[in-house]
Amino acid sequence: MLSIKPLPRITEPVQRWKRFGEKQLFLPNHVVALLRPKPKQSPHLATFAVPLQFNKLDLRDYLHHAYDVETTAIRSFINQPKPERKNKNGPWYRPRAQKMMIAELVKPFVWPEPLKEAEELKQWDHEMFQKLQKERRAQAKKQKNPKKVPLRRALAVPDDQKSLSEQAKELLRQAKAEAKARGEKVKEVEVEKKKETKLDSGDI
């Protein structure tokens, strides 16, 4: 049997950049946003949304000088959105693209867990936000195909309609109980009930 050599230990990444840019920028006017990493992304990677004119070296120098964050390498890509139409039948246009960069960090950085609980999200009025979003989506869907009329049963039953039907049922129950007490008129009442229910459902 051969003895296996132990694997080399994965060491901390070492900064490879030897030198930084020499051109001095006194008043840069760029907005750089740090984005939450994907669930299985390494803590040594940090994603940024950067202006389109940025390049890898720009971000490297920006992070080094403004934030004191050392990087070993930077990857970049551009998210190009799909063409859209202005208004409904307006001209086609392509929304502005968004440049993204992923920096490989020397020091790992783990994001705090995203907020999930309703109590925590109350500050942003999360419940109302969700309700509104849902309604807007439904409205957009309706506007997209106006010819498609949804079936009655697919629609939510209004509250007043519900209470009306409940009241009718209650009435019927009482009538049935009375009829049972009398014994002979049960059949007729049942017929009446059937009619009533039919009417009720027809109204809906």
Partner: peptide, 28 residues
């Protein structure tokens, strides 16, 4: 110059928060 950089960092902070709020569908 210092004030300018304070402003730049504040804008980055606002942009980061906006991305987080919109991506995480946190709310208003």
């Amino acid at each position: 110059h210092k004030l300018w950089w304070v402003c730049v960092k504040e804008r980055n902070r606002i942009a980061t928060a906006a991305w987080e709020r919109e991506r995480g569908k946190m709310g208003f």
